[in-house]
Design a protein around this nucleic acid. Sequence first.
DNA 1: CCCTGATTCGC
DNA 2: GCGAATCAGG
Length: 198
Amino acid sequence: MSWNDERVEVLKKMWGEGQSASQIAKELGGVTRNAVIGKVHRLGLSNRNGSGGAAATTASAASDAKAKAAPEAKAKPAAPKPAPKPAPKPETVAEAAPAPAPVSRIKAIIPAGQPLPPQPSANEIDPAALAKVSEVEKKAKRLSLMELTERTCKWPVGDPATPDFWFCGLPVQAGKPYCEAHVGVAFQPMSSRRDRKR
DNA sequence: CCCTGATTCGC
DNA sequence: GCGAATCAGG
């Protein structure tokens, strides 16, 4: 397979949409995600940096001995990032259910002093995302607290003070505490993974 | 372990 | 130019 115009176009489009390299590779077929990433770099798409360089995003910079002097300094514009981080850590707890009540069927019974998982103010959850959650909850694995692992969705469903309380348990998505659907409602905005920090 | 993108370097 | 291998990280 080679990079003809059409394939490159698809690459550009998808990359622009924030699709992951692996997804793009899968779409194109005949190439690996590495190939896609390599092409992205060669096309200069990786970061939209006008000039000046110094785009040490995450992995890279000074790593091996072969690394050159990294002229890294300058603080980034630092976008306002309230980054909600409602990630319970069941591994350490015993039964003090950290479970923040999400938006399950229980519509408005959020206890007064309870920490609200989604941002309480100015927060409108994407209807599409909610719909997705509803679907997902049907096929959720309904795990108990102790059944949760590092890669099971830890989204709590139901009332912790009730036997009908369980965790989603579906496969989590890279690093996040929840499955894709629940990540969708837990973290609202974020254009894509485009932003690197630090 | 799953995944992500970034970089290097032989081809 | 290409992309596997490797790296760094969530």
